[in-house]
Computed example of a mutant assay.
Amino acid sequence: MHIIRGEADIQEGLEALVELDPRLRPIASEAGPLPLRLVEPGFAGLAHVVVSQSVSRASAEAIWKRIGASGEPLTAAAYAAFHSQAWREFGLSRGKAETLSRVALAVIDGSLDLQALGQETPESAMARLTALKGIGPWTAEVYLMFCVGHADVFPSGDVALQAAVGAAFGMEKRPQAKDLAREAAIWSPWRSVAARLFWALYAVQTRRDILPIG
């Protein structure tokens, strides 16, 4: 099991990928340098991913700035200590606020160890995260990729990845999540690097940085 900790791991993964699937060579040339964007695992990392769900980058960053306005680290205990209506002031939806509260309580009572997920297989870590109401596959996958560093995760439900893969391989229409997951199987055990590759390609082609972690 590979854990991505730096640029050298990204390069190792990319070199392995173009051997596994030669179709990726011209894509890698067009995409340019691949983003690392690792952040520390823990409550703040997962909270940032939750905040980023289904909103624009600008909206997510504005909400995140309000949550962190105190300047203190955003721990599970700190979030749990916010007053009951703080989520309205932050600009969070009720659903996201409830999800963050559930995550915070799980971390506090010890039923969820966000740092320890790097010691589990991606499948086991995914199951542990998605067992919490409000944490869906995309959120869990992005956390495991960009906070924990799991190298073999591919968020096949991500619309930008679907669009990028569909365009790169000349598909008549954007592949659905199950079809993209099947396509991505060939890129194991480096699917997280493959996802970075196609996000980078999408950014080059659209001139938009839509990577989930800023």
Rank of each mutant, 00 (worst) to 15 (best):
P73H: 04
E12F: 06
K96R: 11
A16P: 00
E172C: 00
P189R: 05
A195L: 07
P189S: 04
D179H: 13
G68M: 06
I63L: 09
W87C: 07
R128S: 07
S156V: 02
A44I: 00
D21C: 04
P155F: 09
G136H: 10
T206F: 05
P73R: 06
I4Q: 01
R57P: 00
V51A: 13
A58M: 09
A116P: 08
S192V: 10
E120T: 00
W64Q: 05
T99Q: 01
I4D: 01
V204S: 03
L24Y: 10
T75R: 13
A31I: 07
L17P: 00
V107N: 03
G166H: 09
Q85V: 11
H2N: 11
A163T: 13
C147H: 12
P189T: 02
A167V: 05
M126V: 10
Y143D: 10
A168Y: 13
G6L: 06
D21L: 01
P122K: 07
Y143G: 07
A77K: 15
P35R: 02
V55S: 06
F43N: 01
L92E: 12
F154H: 11
V103C: 07
H150I: 10
L161M: 07
V165F: 12
W190K: 04
G110E: 11
V39I: 13
T130E: 15
V50S: 09
V153Q: 00
A163E: 14
Q11V: 15
H83G: 02
S93P: 05
I3M: 03
